[in-house]
């Protein structure tokens, strides 16, 4: 059975994606920091689906390790899904460049470093799919989270370029733009229930998008329309809003 490699596998969204793909016949590589902590989760999927699940150690900020990490995979995956991300503290990131750098490197630079390696392999063998989880926060910078937002904007642009490059090689690239999702990342926030997706809904949307050959999806779907409205607000007006 083909493998799916999941990066940032401890995230709630990643876990839902892991379940979804195992249920649909995939074996799994789960890559994360302190991946030992994923063992109970991995065993749960093994018992439920009878699929192979391996937990692998990966730090997305350790750029130099990425080539070896991928080389060490015995069987190369059919697809990869990246869920790594770091929201960080916006105010802190304005004062301490360290924080800004962690946000940028986790959401963008690190993902580029690893996906570059994987993309070349997929390109050479002329098959595969790459799912990148970006965010609606990358669509327009807002004072409350623009360090994170700008890194996600860069990631979206990177994925779009990658798609442009890999289409000729029969490799699909899917950009996922979640709105609000109820996860550890947003645990302390008071999110509007009607606009907030469950990780399960995101995983369903991601899987359907990949199977149906979609390029860019918003999840839940209505975020496409919400973002359309937000993007049409003229800049002179937008800059005065408290967002």
């Amino acid at each position: 059975m083909p493998y799916l490699l999941i990066i940032g596998a401890k995230s709630d969204i990643a876990k839902a994606i892991a379940n979804k793909y195992a249920e649909n016949g995939y074996d799994l590589y789960l890559a994360a920091r302190n991946s030992k902590e994923l063992e109970t989760f991995a065993q749960d999927i093994r018992v439920k689906t009878d699929k192979k699940v391996e937990c692998l150690e990966l730090d997305i900020l350790d750029f130099a390790s990425h080539q070896d990490f991928y080389n060490n995979l015995n069987e190369k995956p059919e697809g990869v899904a990246s869920a790594v991300g770091y929201l960080g503290d916006q105010t802190e990131s304005q004062k301490e460049f360290n924080e800004a750098q962690t946000i940028i490197n986790t959401n963008y630079t690190g993902v580029v470093s690893l996906l570059n390696v994987i993309a070349s392999n997929f390109e050479a063998r002329k098959s595969g799919f790459i799912i990148g989880i970006s965010s609606v926060a990358g669509e327009r910078g807002r004072q409350s989270n623009y360090t994170y937002g700008s890194a996600k904007a860069a990631l979206s642009a990177y994925l779009s370029g990658l798609r442009n490059r890999l289409t000729a090689s029969n490799v699909a690239v899917i950009t996922v733009k979640p709105g609000f999702v109820d996860t550890q990342m947003t645990e302390d926030m008071d999110l509007p229930k009607a606009l907030t997706a469950t990780p399960q809904q995101v995983a369903d949307d991601v899987y359907n998008a990949q199977v149906n050959g979609k390029n860019i999806i918003y999840t839940r779907w209505f975020w496409k329309w919400i973002m359309l409205i937000i993007k049409t607000i003229p800049e002179w007006k937008f800059k005065q809003l408290k967002l």
């Binding site: 109970t40 989760f41 065993q43 749960d44 018992v47 439920k48």
Partner: peptide
């Protein structure tokens, strides 16, 4: 969480919150 399944004996080991539906 699902903890283990013994194929031969047909014995499933699960945590108590698992739903029969699952």
């Amino acid at each position: 969480k699902f903890l283990d399944f013994d194929q031969k004996a047909g014995v499933l080991h699960i945590q108590a919150g698992v739903l029969l539906a699952d």
